[in-house]
Write a protein that binds this DNA or RNA. Structure first.
Lengths: 190, 190
DNA sequence: ATAAAATCGGTACACCCGTACCACTTTCAC
DNA sequence: GTGAAAGTGGTACGGGTGTACCGATTTTAT
């Protein structure tokens, strides 16, 4: 069971541990998130980690959830400001290792039911963003197709460090093929 | 440096260790591939692992390479026999945890340059298969788009255990939209 | 036959891990 | 104020890890 402190300092400490966990996951990946490393990174004693989080798995789960949430809001903002076609630029600009940590946890969710729910929230959120910007329902085939394309392009770039040269072409082609005629929202504002 | 034995029994032992590593990766994921577990699973003493593989990383790299190669030939066979549209059926039928291990290593390649080369071989191989079955060059935009769609559908199924209900619909739509008019190869044989 | 090289396998080392424990201090409710 | 609850932090335990070491054994080359 996850502990939720009532005192102010305690809440701040818990949050510090969480961001420390996210940072470590970003920098060193999965294996780097240990009790000792998290505690040290948050300038707290070792026992703080076991006090605020009942286990390492719970800590990782919450870190994953936080990572997903911030990531979703970030990309939503970017797309509403720059349009779908500019998404490759955001991918290229984003912190690569951070995205790596996100994907690491995502795949790990395949073996951990607790993480799986968060993983679903993650993809659902991405699909919803695309659906919203295209003014289409989430279940629309074109939305799903566009999402799958973007997802792979992103993962490929993060893992294999491929240049995103053809991403723009690919994306433009996909949008042109998929979207209905009246979708100004798919384009960046003038 | 990777050791390549000259004697027969030694070669068999090395191969046994490798398949043991793949098995363990399949069953328990990344963390399960330890020297002791691999040795025990291959019915060999602990020291065998360090004798045939200079480090755990090298062992994992070779396991990854082997996993990728067998996976590529398997899917190539399937597609030539059943067609592209039947791919979701193969995905559904395949050993889920095995695919999970593959994807785990793929993402991990983002932090390990040695694995990264294998990861590229993996995606390149997938793209090539699609290009071949569609009689299109690998650089064709439609090939790339089809690949990205398939890739995400696959990963989603493996990680989130989503039903592949809409995969057929999605795939059919994508193929209909993308492929040129004369591509009988994309359809299953009558 | 014999020396060199390859292989084998048992053991040991140093390290890091998650987590439990517990005496201590601070905060809160009344 | 006083007792209960919450928070704190130092330490310890049991266990698993990668890898090095080294004498014994087998294979190969000559």
């Amino acid at each position: 069971m996850t502990t939720h402190p009532t005192q102010d300092r305690a809440r701040r400490r818990r949050a510090a541990l969480l961001t420390a966990a996210v940072d470590l996951l970003t920098q060193g990946g999965f294996a780097a998130v240990t009790h000792r490393a998290v505690a040290h990174h948050a300038h707290l004693p070792l026992a703080a980690t076991t006090y605020y989080f009942t286990s390492r798995d719970h800590l990782l789960a919450e870190a994953f959830a936080q990572l997903v949430d911030t990531e979703l809001t970030t990309t939503r903002h970017w797309i509403t400001h720059h349009g779908l076609t500019a998404l490759p630029d955001q991918i290229a600009a984003a912190d690569r290792t951070r995205q790596l940590g996100l994907w690491e946890l995502y795949v790990h969710a395949g073996r951990d039911p607790a993480l799986q729910a968060i993983a679903r929230r993650w993809t659902d959120g991405c699909v919803r963003i695309i659906a919203d910007t295209l003014n289409l329902p989430e279940t629309d085939t074109r939305v799903r197709l566009l999402y799958t394309t973007l997802s792979t392009l992103w993962l490929e770039h993060v893992v294999e460090q491929r240049p995103l040269d053809d991403a723009h072409t690919l994306l433009a082609h996909a949008i042109a093929t998929y979207t209905p005629t009246t979708t100004e929202n798919a384009l960046p504002p003038p």
